[in-house]
């Protein structure tokens, strides 16, 4: 169990606890400055990106202490408000039975970082009571939203997994889960910041993938599935290699293997990885 489970899991995984999907409807905010157009920082666009400008500076300066301080302060804030965690497809499908309503929406990260046009960019899922007020903040839901049934959402989730997107749960006011994301490197700002800057806005999942070298035929079907730079082919043995330290436990490689050679193991069952979130 990760620290979020300990705090909000009620003995189980926090993102399978129905309480974390419920929230009283938002208060109607007084007509504030937003009505007249509030200023936004264009450089902070995308999931958890407010800190990037400073982080890049600290990186270039070579001052590790500075970099660590930026991360520490930003994460302290993020874990109380807005962060994400990788989940498996099975868990994702379970969540779709709990959360309601479900609405497909466009992906902010890929719009601002990849220039994906709205029509091709419905790769995010907004969930829960927050979605009822989407019309009030159309910019957050740019391109509109499409409410779907749980069955439609599941079919769509499986399609996303098949195409190779990592699935994550996203918190909007800890521990309230308001979004389910389908992400990839480098289009997703959260994945990119984790991989390139080790900014732990996105937490690793509760599983890790391990290759059974006896079963692996070296067919390479799993190559290209990993969005976290954890998987490659050991050319000299012609076997898949997974860096367990780097694995986020998304399970994308598992479903791509025709030989059943990759298994998802509980992170907690591996003492060396149990605290590696």
């Amino acid at each position: 169990m990760c620290w979020v489970c300990e705090k909000y899991g009620k003995g189980g995984k926090w993102y399978l606890n129905p309480e974390n999907f419920a929230r009283r409807l938002y208060k109607i905010r007084k007509e504030g400055k937003e009505a007249a157009g509030a200023d936004a920082d264009p450089q902070a666009a995308g999931m958890g990106a407010g800190v990037v400008a400073e982080l890049v500076k600290a990186r270039i300066s070579g001052d590790r202490e500075w970099e660590n301080e930026i991360k520490r302060e930003a994460l302290e804030q993020a874990y109380q408000t807005h962060f994400g965690q990788v989940v498996t497809l099975d868990e994702y499908l379970q969540i779709l039975d709990t959360a309601y309503p479900l609405a497909k929406m466009t992906c902010g990260c890929r719009r601002v970082q990849r220039g994906m046009p709205d029509e091709e960019n419905f790769t995010c899922m907004g969930i829960g009571p927050g979605m009822y007020k989407w019309e009030r903040w159309p910019e957050t839901y740019r391109g509109g939203v499409e409410f779907v049934t749980p069955a439609e959402a599941k079919e769509w989730a499986m399609m996303n997994h098949k195409e190779g997107r990592v699935q994550t749960v996203d918190v909007f006011g800890t521990p309230y889960i308001g979004g389910l994301c389908q992400c990839e490197y480098p289009g997703c700002v959260a994945v990119r910041n984790r991989i390139d800057y080790d900014f732990k806005f996105l937490l690793k999942g509760h599983f890790v993938a391990k290759v059974d070298r006896e079963k692996c035929t070296g067919c390479k079907s799993c190559l290209g599935r990993c969005q976290f730079k954890a998987l490659n082919l050991e050319v000299y043995t012609s076997k898949a290699y997974i860096d367990l330290d780097q694995c986020f436990g998304c399970g994308l490689c598992v479903t791509a293997c025709p030989s059943g050679a990759i298994q998802l193991l509980d992170r907690q069952s591996m003492p060396g990885l149990a605290e590696n979130w």
Partner: peptide, 20 residues
């Protein structure tokens, strides 16, 4: 932004409005 092989650019909003 689209052509950049290193995904260097970001294009974000400078204003956010209520209702539009």
């Amino acid at each position: 932004l689209s052509v950049c092989p290193s995904v260097v650019f970001v294009c974000g909003p400078t204003k956010v409005w209520k209702g539009q």
